[in-house]
Measured scan of single mutants.
Amino acid sequence: MGMPNRKYADGEVVMGRWPGSVLYYEVQVTSYDDASHLYTVKYKDGTELALKESDIRLQS
């Protein structure tokens, strides 16, 4: 078993793309699913969504 190939840690605050949009919002990573390679993130309004790594970026 190798290390999970994840870029962002639980609790890390990053920018997540809103689905169907080009806009990124501040989100907190809450979990990562090794099987689906999706991150569960929480937006400031409390919305929780699963995002692909390509829809997440570090805060500038």
Rank of each mutant, 00 (worst) to 15 (best):
M1P: 15
M1L: 12
M1Y: 01
M1C: 15
M1S: 15
G2N: 06
G2A: 06
G2I: 06
G2S: 04
G2C: 08
G2K: 02
M3A: 15
M3K: 15
P4G: 15
P4D: 13
P4L: 12
N5Q: 14
N5G: 14
R6N: 05
R6E: 02
K7P: 04
K7D: 02
K7H: 06
K7V: 09
K7Y: 05
K7G: 03
K7W: 03
Y8D: 01
Y8V: 03
Y8S: 01
Y8P: 02
A9Q: 14
A9V: 09
D10N: 11
D10E: 07
D10A: 06
D10I: 11
D10H: 04
G11A: 04
G11N: 07
G11P: 02
G11I: 02
G11W: 06
G11F: 06
E12A: 11
E12W: 06
E12H: 05
V13L: 12
V13W: 13
V13E: 05
V13C: 10
V13Y: 13
V14A: 05
V14I: 04
V14W: 01
V14K: 00
M15L: 14
M15V: 05
M15H: 07
G16S: 06
G16N: 01
G16L: 08
R17C: 04
R17V: 05
R17L: 09
R17W: 03
R17D: 00
W18D: 03
W18K: 11
W18F: 12
P19S: 04
P19K: 05
P19F: 05
P19C: 06
G20D: 08
G20L: 05
G20T: 04
G20H: 07
S21D: 07
S21V: 04
S21P: 01
S21E: 07
S21I: 02
V22W: 12
L23M: 15
L23I: 13
L23W: 11
L23N: 10
L23K: 12
L23H: 13
L23E: 14
Y24Q: 02
Y24H: 04
Y24W: 15
Y25M: 11
Y25L: 10
Y25G: 04
Y25T: 08
E26T: 09
E26V: 11
E26G: 02
E26S: 07
V27D: 00
Q28H: 07
Q28Y: 10
Q28S: 10
Q28M: 14
Q28R: 11
V29H: 00
V29R: 00
V29M: 00
V29Y: 00
V29Q: 00
T30C: 12
T30Y: 07
T30P: 00
S31K: 10
S31W: 07
S31A: 12
S31G: 14
S31P: 00
S31H: 11
S31Y: 09
Y32N: 00
Y32I: 01
Y32D: 00
Y32W: 09
D33L: 03
D33R: 01
D33C: 07
D33N: 09
D33F: 02
A35Q: 13
A35G: 10
A35N: 12
A35C: 11
A35H: 11
S36G: 06
S36L: 13
S36P: 00
S36C: 09
S36V: 08
H37D: 14
H37F: 11
H37K: 13
H37R: 10
H37P: 02
L38D: 07
L38T: 13
L38A: 06
L38V: 09
L38G: 03
Y39E: 01
T40C: 10
T40G: 06
T40H: 11
V41F: 00
V41D: 01
V41L: 04
V41H: 01
K42I: 13
Y43W: 11
Y43M: 15
Y43A: 13
Y43R: 09
K44T: 09
K44L: 11
K44Q: 11
D45P: 01
D45Q: 03
D45C: 08
D45A: 02
D45E: 03
G46T: 03
G46N: 06
G46A: 04
G46V: 04
T47Y: 08
T47K: 08
T47S: 09
L49G: 08
L49V: 11
L49I: 13
L49D: 03
L49N: 04
L49W: 15
L49K: 08
A50W: 13
L51F: 02
L51K: 00
L51V: 07
L51P: 00
L51G: 00
L51E: 00
L51D: 00
K52I: 08
K52L: 13
K52E: 12
K52W: 09
E53D: 08
E53R: 02
E53Y: 04
E53V: 06
E53P: 06
S54T: 12
S54W: 07
S54Y: 07
S54P: 05
S54G: 09
S54D: 13
D55S: 05
D55H: 07
D55F: 04
I56M: 11
I56P: 01
I56Y: 00
R57E: 09
R57F: 11
R57L: 10
R57P: 02
R57A: 10
R57V: 11
R57T: 08
Q59H: 14
Q59M: 14
Q59R: 14
S60L: 12
S60P: 13
